[in-house]
Structures are given as structure tokens and as C-alpha cells.
Amino acid sequence: MDEGRNTVPRRWTFAESGAGAAGPATATEATNTTEAEAVDFRVEQPARTFGDLVLADVVRRRVDTALNVVAHRDVLFKEWNLASISPHRGGAVVSLYGPPGTGKSACAEAIAHRLGRPYLRVSYAQIESRYVGETPKNIVRCFAEARRHDAVLVFDEADSILGRRLSRVTQSADHSVNVSRSVMLTELDHFDGVVVFTTNFPENYDVAFVRRILAHIRLELPDLAARRELWTKLLPKELPLHPEVTADVLADESEGMAGGDIVNVVMAAAAAAVARRGERRVVELADLRDELAATARARREVGNPPSSPRLVAWEDVPPLSSATGEGGGQQG
């Protein structure tokens, strides 16, 4: 294990095959170590690059600026003495936020490719544990793995991990939440690499995490030019298309759609076309329009509350007295 600032604090040291134990464990610790399932943090090589993505110029510039902290660390922290004002911040922490399907996860992978490093993707489900004390240990584990492989650490659904700490602790679960948040803060302060958080709900971040993030970068829904570029990229040249299908037409008819929506539209339209035979076994404009309409409707209705109250049971009807006066007449 490395000495100095990157050493895992002893109170969070964990025993694994090939790793030394921190010392004799209590009965409870031994039980948790035995029963708790080992978390498999897999380090992967990035396949997607910034050339594969359709991003606004401002997003690319903001990413480049954040990565300059890593590329020019010695100049910034030694020659220009930024270490005097931020002694523990040797790495770069980036938060990518915005509507679903705008390419946040793909952008995180492209950041790793730009740096020539592998990446380690972590979800809330991987680090959260039902065993007392295991969640903070899992947080330490993923940072240790990232250090060991010099990997970019990517946290998906980061709002679940970086949520606000609880000011009123009323049960052991509340205490565990606060401990986990504190451990995450400590690890971020002592990590020299690159961390990328992705989220659809940045408003749920604890303020202590907000100020530790170097760059907050919003990925917007694509405009007309970006949608045209997306359709051009996402219609494979091998996909048989009717001549009337063009990126220009589709870009005009897909306003409000994200890249992830367009992928789903192409997949569903191709699935409809492949069931046909003969000359009609091509993706027609009608196939794509049907799926665009279905996707637009789903964006309006699925996951959103209804625009007006719906009667689901007679018990939901307010008492008559609330709608009428004492004499039974309607109130004015």
C-alpha cells in the first residue's frame, strides 16, 4: 500500500485476499466480513471517444479546462503555487448533469479515453450495503482500485451518493448515511486522479460536495444542427433506408429529443422493418415517425404526474360538506 496522502485510513482498512488485515477484528466485524459479498469493481478500457459524441462547443471547452488540472499539475501546483491555496486538491472532479439521454455516461468514458486511462464505473447499488459499516468501506475500495489502476473514477446516479447529510439523526441508518457522506468527502480530498459524477438531479447534491467539484457541466438537449449530426451518426450505413429517410427531415421532426431517445427510435423502427419481406424490408419514414410520436408521448406521460387529478376510488371524492353550504346549496 502506498505511503503518505493516498494511504487508506486505518479505521477503514479492509481485509481481502492479497491485502493485509488491519488487526484482530471484533465478532461483529468478523461476521460482516464473512457474510458481506465482495464488490466487484471492474476496470474497463474506454471504447468511446469525443469524436463519437455530439456535444456543444461549450461542453468540450469546459471538459478541456478541467482536464488541464491533471495535464499541467506540476506547473499549476508547484511552479504557480496553487498548492498554497488548495493543498489537498491534486486531481480534478467533474460533474456532468442534464436531462436523461444527453450523453453524460458516454462523455465520462470519452474523458478517460482523452487521458489515455482506463475507467472504473461505480453505481449506488454497488457501494450501498445492508451490512453496518460496509458502505463506507466500499467507497474506500473503489477509490483504492482507481488509484491502483490509475483509472478515471465514474460515479453514475451520483445524486444517490452525494445527497444531503442528515441534520437530525434519529436511527442507526441515519448515522450510516452521514458516515458514508463523510468518507466520500475525505476520499475526494485525498484523491489525485480524475473523478466524474453523472446525474439527472444535481439539485440533490450536498453543498459540501458542490464546492469540491471543479467543473459543473450541463449537457443540454440537442438543437437542430446537433440533431442533424446525431441522426447522421446513429443511422448506420448498413441499415437499409427508404430514399425519403434523411437526416434533415428527421432532425426537423425530433425537437426535444435527446441522443438516447434517437437511439431508441432507430432501434424500434428497425425492429418493425425487419419483420417485413421483399422490397419493403427497409426502414421507412413512417416507421421512424411512428416511433418518434410514441417517444414524444412517453416523454410527456411516463414518469410525470398527470396534468389533472384522476378519480381512482370513490374514497377520493371530497366530503359533500366541503363543496356545499350548510343548507345544501353550493357555496358562492
Rank of each mutant, 00 (worst) to 15 (best):
V263S: 00
R61K: 12
S307D: 15
R11F: 14
R11K: 15
N204M: 12
V195K: 08
P240Y: 09
V263G: 00
R277Q: 12
R42K: 15
H216D: 04
N138V: 09
S308L: 15
M184C: 12
A286M: 05
A110Y: 05
D192E: 15
L96Q: 01
D290S: 15
P136I: 07
G4D: 10
P236W: 09
A293V: 05
L55S: 02
L239P: 08
V179S: 03
N200F: 06
E203H: 11
R280A: 14
P306L: 12
A258T: 06
V94G: 01
F143M: 08
L53C: 09
H113L: 07
R227E: 01
R48I: 12
R280S: 14
T198M: 05
R299Q: 14
T198D: 00
T186C: 05
R227Y: 02
C107N: 04
V58C: 03
V263F: 00
F41Q: 02
P318M: 10
P236A: 10
R73K: 15
L188W: 07
P222V: 00
E301Y: 14
N6R: 14
V317P: 03
P240C: 09
E253A: 15
M257R: 00
P318W: 07
A92V: 10
P243E: 12
R61N: 11
V154H: 01
L235C: 06
D159I: 14
A106N: 04
G4H: 11
S176R: 12
D223W: 02
D287N: 08
L188V: 13
A38P: 09
A271I: 01
H72L: 15
L234E: 07
A173F: 10
V122T: 04
R61V: 10
V266S: 00
G91R: 10
D150V: 01
G193Q: 13
A298V: 06
R164Y: 01
R299M: 13
P136H: 05
A313W: 03
P100A: 07
H216K: 13
L67S: 07
L166W: 01
V283M: 10
I213A: 05
L185A: 08
P118K: 10
A125P: 03
R218N: 06
R227I: 06
M1E: 11
I85N: 04
G256F: 03
L162I: 05
S86V: 10
P9F: 12
T65H: 10
Q45Y: 04
D189A: 15
Q126T: 09
V152Q: 03
T170V: 13
C142D: 01
E157R: 05
Q330A: 14
P9C: 09
T135V: 05
R62E: 12
L241R: 07
V177L: 12
S180V: 03
S176W: 02
A71M: 13
A258P: 02
P87D: 08
Q126W: 04
F209R: 11
L239I: 11
T49A: 11
A215R: 12
S308P: 01
L219K: 00
R114N: 12
H88Y: 09
E229G: 00
V179E: 11
W314C: 03
V59W: 05
G23Q: 03
G328H: 06
L82S: 07
K137I: 09
M1W: 08
G329H: 11
R165G: 05
N200Y: 02
A226M: 11
G23A: 04
A30E: 14
A112K: 06
A269W: 00
E16L: 14
G163E: 08
M257A: 08
A208Q: 06
R11Y: 14
T199A: 04
Y124N: 12
